[in-house]
Design a protein around this nucleic acid. Structure first.
Lengths: 227, 227
DNA sequence: CCGGCGCGTCAGGGTTCCGTCAAAGGCGTC
DNA sequence: GACGCCTTTGACGGAACCCTGACGCGCCGG
C-alpha cells in the first residue's frame, strides 16, 4: 500500500486530505509542524510527501532540504503563495511539484499519482540511510559522520558535498552536477570551490589525505565516492 | 548537455522558450505538431519534453500516450485550459507536470529543472546501463570500466570515445561522426586523433592490443565496437 | 618494383587541471 | 566592537592530459 505523509498546520486541510486519501486506499501519516514531519519521515519512510510551506516552526524550504539529505521521496508542495520566486525556490530546493491553494482535490490526487508512478520503478527508496567504509560511517538521516568512534564535525557545505557524493556512491559525479547541487543551479564552472572543499573532506575523513582511497578524483570529469 | 523537445503550434511561445532555454545552455529541438514531435522524440531522445496540449493534428493526450509507449522521458504539459478534468486526464495519461498558460518563465524553468533532476540518477533513458564483453565491463551510468576485477582509469577523451562506440555497439561508426561527437562539430578530418586514442583504448582494454577483438578498424570508413 | 595511402605506435612539449596554502570577506555571537 | 567560524578568492608548483610530428608497416595500384 502506498504511504503518504501529510504535513500541514491547518487541521481542516489535513482532515480533508486524510479522508480523501484513505478513501482511495492510501496509508496516511500526518504532522502539523516541521520537526515532527522530519521525524515521522525517517521513522515511516513514506512513498510520497505532501508539504505545506507555511509551518509554525521551520521554514518549508528547510523541511525539503532536510528530507533531501537522505531520501529521494517525491515531495509535493502546497502553498498559499502564488509568486514565482517562492515556487522556484521550493522546486530548486528539491520539491517535485508545487500546488497553490486553494487547490482542487482531483488535481492534487492526480499529481500525487503522477509523482508516485514515476518514483515506482527505481525500486527501493530503501537506499540505505547509513553508508560505511572501513574508516568511517556516514548516517544520512541523522546527518552524522563517525570516524574511529568519534563524531566528525562538518560545516554545512562540507556536509552537503559529502551527501551528494555518498548518495551517488560508486558513480562518477561530474563537477558541474556537484556545483549545481551544492551551490545552486547558477553555478557550474567554479571548480576551485570543489578543490577546496574536497581537500577539507579528505583531511577530515581520509586516513592519508594526500592519497585518498574513498574520494577519488577523475581528472577533467569529476569525483567519485568509493566505500 | 540537456536536450529539450518543445512542442507547440504558437510560434511566439516556441520562440520565447527556445531563446530562454538556449541562453541557459540547453540543447533545444522544436516541433509544431504532434506527428513531427513523435518523430523528433524518437530520433533525438530528449531529456525532457515540453508539450502544448492544443495541437493542430493530434490530441495532446495522444501525444503523451505515444511517448509513454516507449520512453519514460519527463513530460511537462502546457495548456490554456484551467479545468481540473483536463489536468487529471493529462497527468493520468503519463504527464509529469501541468502548467497553465499564461505561465511565468522562471517557474517553468524551475519545474523543468526539477523534472530533469529526478530523472537523472536513474541513469538509463537508454536501454542498457552496463555492457559486458568477455574481457571487460563498461558501466555507462557510473562511468566505470572494469577489467579482470580492477577498475581501469580512462581520461575524459578516452571515455567519451568509448561511450560513443559502446552506445552504437555492433554498428559501424564513421570517423567523421566519432570526431564530431567527441571533439566537436567543427572537427571531421583529424583522423590522427582517432588513431592515437583508439590505440590507447585498445592498450587499456584489449588483451592483445595489436590484434583487437572488440575495437575493430574498418579501413577508410570508421570503427566498430563488438562485445 | 616502387610510391602513395591509411593505419598503428611512440615520445616530447605546451596547456589545462588539480592539490595546497594563505588571506580576505561575511555573518552571527558574545 | 571584537571574536570565531565559515565561505570565497587568489596564487603557485606539480601532475595529468591533449595535441603534434615522426616513423614503420601493410596494402594497393601504377
Amino acid at each position: 500500500m502506498t504511504r503518504v505523509l501529510v504535513i500541514d498546520d491547518e487541521p481542516q486541510i489535513v482532515r480533508a486530505l486524510v479522508i480523501n486519501l484513505k478513501a482511495r486506499k492510501y496509508e496516511v501519516d500526518a504532522a502539523h509542524d516541521g520537526a515532527t514531519a522530519l521525524q515521522l519521515a525517517a521513522a515511516r519512510h513514506p512513498d510520497v510527501v505532501v508539504l505545506d510551506l507555511g509551518l509554525p516552526d521551520l521554514d518549508g524550504v528547510d523541511v525539503i532540504k532536510g528530507l533531501r539529505g537522505w531520501t529521494r521521496v517525491p515531495i509535493i508542495v502546497l502553498s498559499a503563495r502564488h509568486t514565482s520566486d517562492e515556487k522556484v525556490e521550493a522546486l530548486d530546493a528539491g520539491a517535485d511539484d508545487y500546488v497553490t491553494k486553494p487547490f482542487g482535490m482531483d488535481e492534487l490526487l492526480a499529481r500525487l499519482r503522477a509523482a508516485v508512478r514515476r518514483a515506482e520503478p527505481t525500486g527501493a527508496d530503501e537506499d540505505e540511510v547509513a553508508v560505511e567504509t572501513d574508516e568511517f560511517t556516514v548516517d544520512l538521516a541523522a546527518k552524522k559522520v563517525n570516524r574511529a568512534g568519534r563524531d566528525v564535525r562538518l560545516t554545512p557545505t562540507e556536509w552537503h558535498l559529502l551527501e551528494v557524493l555518498v548518495r551517488n556512491s560508486g558513480r562518477l559525479v561530474s563537477q558541474k552536477q556537484l556545483l549545481q547541487e551544492v551551490w545552486g543551479p547558477s553555478y557550474g564552472t567554479e571548480t576551485n570551490y570543489l578543490r577546496v572543499y574536497m581537500a577539507q573532506l579528505r583531511r577530515k575523513l581520509e586516513s592519508d589525505p594526500s592519497h585518498p582511497k574513498h574520494f577519488v578524483t577523475e581528472p577533467g570529469m569529476g569525483y567519485r565516492f568509493e566505500r
